[in-house]
């Protein structure tokens, strides 16, 4: 891979990490309201996959969607304004953390309903095929989604219709408190590819290059009209299921387990790799992070200074005018 492509991957991951840390901080101070589900620890998945996408490709996202949005080109300030419930946010304050979309960037929406995005991404794939373009639709979803009916309906029909969809399972091993081991006898969800007759693989979801390579293949296949794929990325969420879960996550997992995964930090690993291979210096990385932090401060200021929607704005936007 070219150096600048590698540095781009790092930058994307850092953008996600710093954004999420800031959001966690603001949520703790009650400056961001509602449920907030952070993506910290899983950055390599969104960054690695989206590095293969063009602006006019589509993604669907989940309740844990900030990372997908950033990786697909979402801007800090409009995201932050949405989290603050301001009229300058991506959804004018109607959506909030779990419902960010930007159709110009191909972000077809984060989702409060587990599995909600699966058929939607598949339908975008159908549209691509019917409109005869070379776009691709990527569906991000968690391990928890794999045992919901929509998983089966979506993969099966996308396979039968040979749609350009890449299904990216973020297997962070828990759906709230329910572990993959409790939820299924098959713990490697990529194996289900065979049930649908499609291509698929499992990758270390904390290895951004592995994610990038696997999704590159799948995206290229989709662009060439060779059908859907299922990629399972094994990863881990560091934080509680949502900000506000606090220590309750110790009811279902141990501190030791969390620490083991923190040791496998996708960003620390990748930084070490890049430095070792003389692709970037530690100083340059620090500089990059400082810039990101500065941009974040500006985004927070933008959100704070933005006007709140008027209460009556609630009544606007249900239907397109006809």
């Amino acid at each position: 891979m070219e150096s600048n492509k590698l540095i781009e991957l790092l930058e994307k991951m850092l953008r996600i990490r710093h954004f999420e840390e800031k959001v966690g901080n603001l949520a703790a101070r009650r400056m961001i309201l509602g449920s907030v589900h952070l993506y910290i620890g899983e950055e390599a998945v969104a960054a690695g996959v989206c590095a293969n996408l063009r602006q006019n490709d589509f993604i669907t996202s989940t309740h844990r969607g900030h990372g997908h949005c950033i990786a697909k080109g979402g801007e800090f300030r409009f995201m932050m304004a949405e989290l603050f419930g301001k009229s300058t946010g991506y959804c004018q304050g109607k959506g909030g953390s779990q419902h960010i979309a930007n159709f110009d960037l191909g972000i077809l929406g984060a989702n409060g309903i587990v599995g909600g995005g699966m058929p939607i991404a598949s339908g975008a794939g159908l549209s691509i095929k019917m409109r005869n373009t070379d776009q691709v639709a990527v569906c991000f979803f968690g391990d928890g989604c794999c045992n919901n009916g929509v998983f089966h309906e979506s993969l099966n029909l996308a396979a039968v219709w040979n749609l350009p969809v890449v299904y990216v399972c973020e297997n962070n091993q828990y759906a709230v408190s329910v572990s993959v081991k409790q939820a299924s006898l098959i713990h490697d969800y990529y194996l289900r590819k065979d049930a649908y007759g499609i291509k698929g693989c499992q990758v270390d979801g904390n290895d951004v290059i592995a994610v990038y390579e696997a999704s590159k293949e799948a995206v290229e296949r989709a662009r060439k009209g060779e059908g859907p794929s299922l990629i399972e990325c094994k990863t881990y969420r560091w934080r509680g299921h949502y900000e506000g879960e606090f220590d309750r996550h110790y009811t279902y997992r141990t501190k030791k387990e969390i620490e083991e995964w923190i040791d496998k930090c996708p960003i620390a690993q990748f930084k070490a790799y890049l430095i070792e291979n003389n692709i970037i210096t530690a100083e340059k990385i620090d500089q990059l992070e400082e810039e990101i932090k500065r941009e974040l401060l500006e985004a927070v200021a933008f959100a704070e200074d933005s006007p709140a929607p008027k209460p009556e704005d609630a009544l606007v936007g249900l239907f397109e005018n006809e």
């Binding site: 949405e82 419930g85 304050g93 419902h99 709140a308 929607p309 704005d313 609630a314 249900l318």
Partner: peptide, 16 residues
């Protein structure tokens, strides 16, 4: 409630 989905922002939610 008004015939709208419940909006996120506090003041719109309170209005709805």
């Amino acid at each position: 409630a008004y015939d709208i989905p419940v909006p996120f922002a506090s003041n719109m939610e309170d209005f709805a």
